[in-house]
Amino acid sequence: MSRSDVLVDADWVEAHIGEPGVALVEVDEDTSAYDGGHIPSAIKIDWKKDLQDPVRRDFVDKAGFEALLSERGISNDDTVVLYGGNNNWFAAYAYWYFKLYGHNNVLLLDGGRKKWELDSRELTTDVPSPDKTSYTASEQDPALRALRDEVIAAIGKRNLVDVRSPDEFAGRLLAPAHLPQEQAQRGGHIPTARNVPWSKAANEDGTFKSDAELETLYKDDAGVDFSKDTIAYCRIGERSAHTWFVLHEILGLPNVKNYDGSWTEYGSLVGVPIELGDAR
């Protein structure tokens, strides 16, 4: 896996708008963003309503994912191109989610919605209505997703990469600064975790930094041992999906998992170790 296998640029997307076999999908944190204007031919997936179980904290199950993609007109053979706001946080999350359910032909628009907007490219409010399909998903791939017990067992053994902001890592904030400060019962980070904020992997326009810059960032600057397995986490698993994408898909590290329970789960667990303070 390398950058050219997983990323496309805005010119590529413009050239493939409406092309059969290419499913363009917008996934946002602000789920109303799509309604205000989106890339022509793009359909919308609501990261919360469509991808999360409505009752318990977990993903929709395999049957639910199949029903969702069938209803949105996505086929097993389609090349799915994902993009979104917030520097592709939720698009990267959806990318990871699609991979989790075995859809391997998936790409991310480099720079996402932000670069598209800053380039003043076309947005439309026309909503496509593709024909329904009969999508078949695979069982979830456990190689991509870390659950809490695995995370606790990884302390001091595997790379733990905390991709939140330095203030969240240190325990001074419980959420990113554009969100109300709530959720986890305690602040701080998982002991032995390295702090590499997701934002360091992105340029100001939302595109990913070069392979050489990314390797320097994680390996040399943060001391992530590329010979070890890695678990990335953040607050709810979306920013860490961005970092999972960098480490697993762009840099090609073999064993990288995303801990989607992340700090909202870990910071509320009774009895687990927590460390406070800035990165050392």
Partner: peptide, 16 residues
């Protein structure tokens, strides 16, 4: 987009 940056232009948050 509005971006909030800390010391040394450290990225903190961004909103459309």
């Amino acid at each position: 987009y509005a971006r909030l940056l800390g010391t040394g232009d450290e990225f903190v948050a961004e909103v459309p």
